[in-house]
């Protein structure tokens, strides 16, 4: 899928977001979250396999008005490996997603998602144009809910000689409303994998614990 397709997808989301809001969602709402995650990254490269473990600290902001959603995310972390000869990496991950609340329990998102690995040997940057769907389900109303996210890259770019292949990922989690409605605790597991056309694969898993607060 080309970048033009990704732009068309984003434009469609913008038009959907301009449609009448869902009940009770017309006010401007803003929330912020801080996240800490344990991360495991695995790379399949021509010279072999690498496995690195580390952490990631991220911040996330969510702005919504009516059906329109905007999500900004930025995180940094460090990955190391017990194996000899594997360079530790600094991990930077960020996304700017535009979304629409299709149903009270279903959102659609689209936008760029960037990730970079910095090692002593160099810098590797990935850029995906991703399309994402998010759903949630109530377990105990007002107390517990579950969340499901799935995404795939509709276009991508990476600063290596090989061309970009594909990327996809998923995330599931539990959200506990610990101080309703202002404070939410989220425990999630996510995994994504990016592929280059030549066969290289980068898989990143994370178990994340985040705390979110409604600011307005």
């Amino acid at each position: 899928m080309s970048r033009a397709t990704a732009f068309a997808l984003a434009a469609g989301l913008c038009m959907a977001a301009a449609s009448p809001p869902l009940v009770g969602q017309s006010a401007l709402r803003l929330s912020a979250a801080a996240e800490g995650a344990t991360v495991r990254a695995r790379s399949l490269i021509p010279s072999g396999r690498e496995r690195l473990d580390g952490y990631l600290f991220a911040g996330e902001g969510l702005l919504s008005r009516g059906r329109a959603l905007l999500r900004l995310r930025y995180g940094q972390g460090r990955l190391t490996s017990d194996s000899a000869g594997v360079q530790p990496r600094s991990l930077t991950d960020g996304a700017a997603l535009l979304g629409v609340a299709a149903l009270p329990w279903l959102d659609f998102w689209a936008g760029p998602h960037a990730r970079s690995y910095v090692t002593d040997l160099g810098n590797q940057r990935w850029l995906y144009w991703e399309a994402r769907a998010s759903a949630n389900a109530q377990l105990v109303p007002g107390q517990l809910q579950s969340s499901f996210d799935g995404w795939m890259a509709v276009a991508g770019r990476v600063n290596v000689p090989e061309s970009f292949g594909s990327a996809r990922g998923a995330e599931v989690g539990l959200i506990a409303l610990i101080a309703r409605p202002a404070l939410r605790l989220r425990l999630a597991y996510r995994i994504d994998q990016a592929r280059l056309a030549a066969g290289r694969r980068e898989t990143v898993e994370a178990v994340a614990l985040s705390l979110a607060r409604d600011l307005r």
Partner: peptide
Amino acid sequence: AVAGSESNGSSKGR
């Protein structure tokens, strides 16, 4: 489902 053959050695934290 996501990583296929690369899923070996997935995080036990999940």
